[in-house]
């Protein structure tokens, strides 16, 4: 008999036998499973799945948030450039902290960074210290910066972002937060702590080696500050 024909017959037999074996087993599984007592799923399992699905939902909302944030950032940048003169006479308090101009307005604080002569290329930065259980969930790449989402199984997350300081202005809601400036080895860290009962997130903003950095999370600001101190390229 032709070799190819023998191979075809063998394949056909295998297919038929595999199908028979599979169908027999499936029938046995289904019959015994349908007769079995109902199984109550554990509370731990329900909670784990709830967390998982919350995360799935949050991924979508974070995507949306990111798009909105980028749009808002562009609007803020354009508005800031056009209205800079007006802002200076608009009842705000301005301070220059080394390389960063901080403007406290009624409802928000504006951080404008000076590039300070740094020629920045494409550097990669990351915190060496991360609270236990956090993993990188996603990374958005820009030409010279990044936005990194770190996520924990319990649903907590940290957003770590950086861009060349000359290109960025950061606005922070200051109605429900307190800000502290901590200097460490010549770098000024703006540590923003939400007021008790507030829904706001902790944030740390700083400028280092020509880059502006931010860390944002519902974690406490002390932990975020520890992460900020550990950031290196």
């Amino acid at each position: 008999m032709d070799k190819q024909l023998r191979a075809d017959i063998t394949e056909t037999i295998l297919r038929r036998a595999a199908t028979t074996a599979y169908e027999q087993e499936m029938a046995e599984f289904i019959n015994s499973a349908e007769k079995a007592e109902p199984i109550i799923t554990s509370k731990a399992h329900d909670a784990r799945m709830r967390a998982l699905f919350k995360r799935e939902e949050r991924k979508e909302s974070l995507n949306k948030l990111y798009v909105i944030a980028k749009r808002a950032a562009i609007v803020v940048l354009i508005s800031a450039t056009m209205l800079f003169g007006a802002l200076l006479t608009d009842g705000h308090i301005q301070a220059t902290v080394r390389d960063t101009i901080v403007q406290w307005h009624e409802r928000f604080t504006r951080f404008e960074f000076r590039g300070n002569g740094y020629e920045v290329g494409k550097s990669e930065w990351f915190p060496d210290f991360m609270p236990e259980g956090f993993m990188i969930d996603r990374i958005y790449e820009f030409y010279t910066g990044r936005l990194i989402f770190l996520e924990h199984d319990d649903g907590n997350y940290v957003i770590f972002g950086y861009e060349p300081a000359a290109d960025i202005v950061i606005g922070v809601d200051n109605e429900f937060t307190e800000m502290e400036i901590i200097s460490h080895f010549g770098v000024d860290y703006f540590v923003i702590t939400p007021l008790p009962e507030s829904e706001h997130r902790s944030q740390v903003i700083w400028q280092m080696e020509g880059y502006a950095f931010t860390l944002l999370s519902h974690l406490d600001s002390e932990t975020l500050f520890q992460m900020a101190l550990s950031v290196s390229s």
Partner: peptide, 23 residues
């Protein structure tokens, strides 16, 4: 749901694993 859980339990003999499989 219940049949799937029972099938998974029969194959794995592990309740937690069966729940994971259902998921």
């Amino acid at each position: 749901k219940n049949t799937c859980l029972n099938i998974a339990l029969k194959i794995t003999n592990n309740h937690a694993m069966a729940e994971d499989i259902l998921h």
